[in-house]
Amino acid sequence: MSITPQDLGSGTLDQSIQRLRARKDTCQKSIQNIARGNGRALESDQRKLKAELRQNALAEVEVDESERFLMLTPRLGQEAKIDERDNILSGEFLEIGILTARAVCHISRGLETGTGFLVGNGIVVTNYHVIKDKAEAKTAMFEFLFDDNRIGTPRSTEVYVADTDHFFWADEALDICFLGLQVVTDINIFGWIPLLREEGKALIGDATNIIQHPDGEKKRIVVHESVFTLVDNGTDADAFCWYSGDTNPGSSGSPVLNNRWEVLAVHHKAVPDTDVNGHVLDVNGKKISKERFAENNAQVHWLANEGIRVSRIVGALEAKVFDNPQYSTVRDDLLALWADPMCTQRARRASYDGMGKQL
């Protein structure tokens, strides 16, 4: 008997498969263009303009050294680019990545695992299919610093539980869940990763980085062979985007970031290739039996990863009408925090200072 998407252990995939199946030819064309160094040929003029305007604005901010705490050096290596993606990065790329990763946590509910990350003010975001309601939130543990730390002084993980009285918002259509944590210590020592509403943070072919806890393991980071593949504005899939990079069950809720370590999307599904009858296909386009899948599940042909776009998440959160005044206050504080031009620098400074306190 052939396997179906439900056998892959990723929950319901029907809508994700339908979205990507309708764009399969475009996605494959995008991958081919990216391989030739010409991914942006599929981008709209409007999105390219937004990216250019955003880059120019960031470059102006970075000219002022007093405002440049842990900001990446702009336009490094432009004269030596081989294709449209600049692979020469500042050494700060590694430093900022370390600070950013501190805000990412491992989520567990019994045998179920996922990933989440702080977005400010003791608020974690993950997927709806990881935590869908307050009852599930109250049975979850949020573990920070769940890392390999074999260098230097061994470091203990720090575990928090949910505080749904402080804040809780779940949206099934977006597959998003925001919730507060019981702040028994200064949780800002981990920094946070702001959700920046403006578009233009990545174009087709740009590198993506995914910080995750796949299969419930210690923190893992994808920075190789991972690129922004497809986006489809103004359609039924407007809230989503697609990218490559390795993920596994447990990666749900991971931040998908650009090379400036800004969040592009919240990862929620790896989408397999299927035939018209819903059978999962292998890399050769053949159906996979349950026996063969049990022997080697790497044979599945994964079309792409799908994430929820940050710009759409922020828009939905802003539009949400809360009956609870406390929730409205927390939401408004979050939106104000993310709108602050210095929010990213403040987040990195908090993580940097927190790291010093924990050494």
Rank of each mutant, 00 (worst) to 15 (best):
59 A>H: 09
34 I>R: 00
37 G>C: 01
7 D>R: 00
43 E>P: 01
79 E>S: 13
64 D>C: 04
33 N>W: 05
37 G>P: 02
66 S>W: 05
38 N>F: 10
38 N>Q: 09
46 Q>I: 15
54 R>Q: 09
6 Q>V: 14
30 S>G: 02
42 L>I: 07
18 Q>L: 03
40 R>K: 11
76 L>K: 06
34 I>D: 00
24 K>Y: 08
14 D>L: 05
15 Q>D: 15
80 A>E: 12
56 N>H: 09
45 D>W: 14
28 Q>A: 12
15 Q>G: 14
19 R>Y: 11
58 L>I: 08
21 R>Y: 10
55 Q>Y: 06
72 L>S: 11
79 E>N: 06
49 L>I: 09
57 A>H: 13
78 Q>G: 10
8 L>K: 04
23 R>P: 13
64 D>H: 02
13 L>V: 04
26 T>P: 12
33 N>S: 02
15 Q>Y: 13
30 S>H: 01
76 L>T: 07
16 S>M: 00
41 A>G: 07
34 I>L: 03
80 A>K: 13
25 D>C: 15
34 I>F: 01
41 A>Q: 15
77 G>S: 03
7 D>E: 01
51 A>S: 02
36 R>K: 14
68 R>Y: 08
78 Q>A: 11
77 G>K: 03
16 S>L: 01
26 T>L: 13
53 L>N: 07
14 D>C: 05
14 D>W: 07
22 A>S: 06
78 Q>W: 15
27 C>Y: 07
9 G>T: 05
53 L>W: 10
40 R>N: 07
47 R>T: 10
16 S>A: 04
5 P>K: 00
29 K>Q: 11
33 N>G: 04
41 A>P: 04
79 E>D: 08
10 S>W: 13
58 L>H: 06
53 L>V: 06
68 R>L: 08
40 R>C: 12
51 A>E: 03
65 E>I: 03
36 R>P: 14
50 K>R: 08
68 R>I: 12
42 L>D: 12
53 L>F: 09
43 E>F: 00
76 L>N: 03
69 F>V: 01
62 E>F: 05
74 P>C: 04
27 C>P: 08
11 G>E: 01
55 Q>N: 05
72 L>K: 14
10 S>E: 13
60 E>D: 09
7 D>H: 00
55 Q>V: 14
53 L>P: 08
67 E>W: 06
23 R>W: 08
53 L>R: 06
